[in-house]
Design a binder for these strands. Sequence first.
RNA 1: GGUCCCGUGGUGAAGUUGGAGUUCACGCCGCCCUGUCAAGGCGGAGGUCGCGGGUUCAAGUCCCGUCGGGACCGCCA
Length: 581
Amino acid sequence: MRSHLCGDLRAENVGGIVTLCGWVGRRREHGEHLAFLDLRDFSGVVQCVVDNKVDVRSEWVVQIKGKVNLRPAGTVNENLPTGKVELTDCEIQVLNNAEPPPFPIDQRGDDVDENVRLKYRYLDIRRERMQKNLRLRAAVNSAIRKSMESQGFTEIETPLLMPSTPEGAREFLVPSRNEPGSFYALPQSPQLWKQLLMVAGLDRYYQIAKCLRDEDLRADRQYEFMQLDAEMSFVDKDDVMSMISTAVVAAAKAATGVEPPPIERMSWHDAMNNYGSDKPDIRFEMKLIEMTKTFSSTSFKAFAGAESIKGICVRAAEFPQQAASGRNKLDALTDRAKKMGAKGLVWIKVGEVNALDSPVAKFFSADEQSALLSQTGAKSGDLILIVADSWSTTCNVLGQLRNDLGRPPVHEGPYRYVWVVDFPLFVGVNPTTNKPQPGHHPFCHPHPEDLDRLETDPLSVRALAYDLVLNGWELGSGSIRIHEPDLQRRVFRQLGISDTDADTRFGFFLQPFKYGAPPHGGFAFGIDRLVAILAGEENIREVIAFPKTQSGSDPMTNAPTTVNAAQLQELGIRLLPPAAK
RNA sequence: GGUCCCGUGGUGAAGUUGGAGUUCACGCCGCCCUGUCAAGGCGGAGGUCGCGGGUUCAAGUCCCGUCGGGACCGCCA
């Protein structure tokens, strides 16, 4: 139907007769003898010169046969790749007419309410921004596949219908028709399958896999999302990190044209200690400053005896607005700190000649005051925030405040990838069972150097686990897995899962490990998140063709919907009446 | 489950101390216009101010509730 694409026409095509297909963009009418219309397809826009008798309107679908001409001197449009040429002697065939679109199919669509964009997603995707994002996504997928294949990985598809394993994220359930009362679960990730593929001797597996989690949605979370899922045998964690780095770097280069520098590493402890987060955004400083010793003999009661005292310094030179926060804002920060579990928040404004302006400054000795200034390097106009609490609370609260005050939008500035390594095997204690909780998942291999403390001091045991972080977003995580049945039982016992429990819940998964499981490990990272950041978007919905809203609905299809009684009957499902109010 | 922000013709906004569905830009329809490119000029149509209640002589505006959207906390092994 067409000989060329709209966006491809250049001066070299001048003189040629071409046939184009596309949508009518804007029309500029100059009386009955002259009108310009912009013809648009996915490749771009070209100007067609017509008389004003053809009745074509915005978003009509047309086929135009015409002659490519140089534009007359003075009428070149430098802003358009096709701006040197135009189509003349146009024969227009209307392939389909169209109602006026509910919003402009151009940049102005960016300002339209997202609900409206999603209701008419097929029109939203006609816009350049979405076309660009979706094609960028395809380029990233393609680069990842190439990279994984060149590193010897084999793409294997794994089932979407699998048994429920209630640990971890809430699952989507699918009722079975053949066995009423029984359910499949949709995979939170292909975790179990890929480990079985290692037992099966597949050696290196990967998949760009759909994962489903029935948890509340966020800017970086959808019910359905895509992961690069990979697993490999006979490797250590450096092998895994190196291969995933290779794939990520290849994807980033395909998307941006620039190869990122080698990805740096940081221990989990350093990340928490210095940035107050296990997904540190290292695009900006405002690091946590250690002050426990400074106040070790303080007479200020809120600080006395605290396990950990740390502060952040909000520098007026970098963050003038935040550093100058007024009482309302400081109270709000204090509330935020308290909601996160801190007993309080001490704020200190540094005035002229190092005068400390704070409700509690009078409780600090002269030595403490000068140490405070020298440690933070605070200057006039800066704001210091201090938390005194347990180490983890202090770090978490200050890390959150650091992000609140200093973090730029995720897509701004440089790409700062960082591997966070040496995660603890267990994070905290389950308040109901009084047992440690897995930091990653229960199949994660403890650090060999810490194995002797697994029973005596489990919370101090490190895991062979690692996260990949980009600009403060967790892209993904991985670990070396436990391949020894004995060690797996020891870890389960720490988690409060008895041998018989383990057999009931994970039997199908544990049984195979008795038949010669190779040492193995792997990784998975979120494609949606990576693509969003590389596309300069701060929200993964912008790189997903048909996403859900924050409440999990689709304004276009109205999903989720009720189903008819016969469908429920067939599945053996009876609904409860709506909860009484 | 919780906190905060938003909801006004098709789209985006403005709407003051409560005083007539008022205003602006784009789009749409019609007319004019031979070099525009977010063309320009003139005219016109188009709204249950998300929905429900309350206060008031009077509510887009104040209060309560509710629905929808967004950001975040919880949650996401």
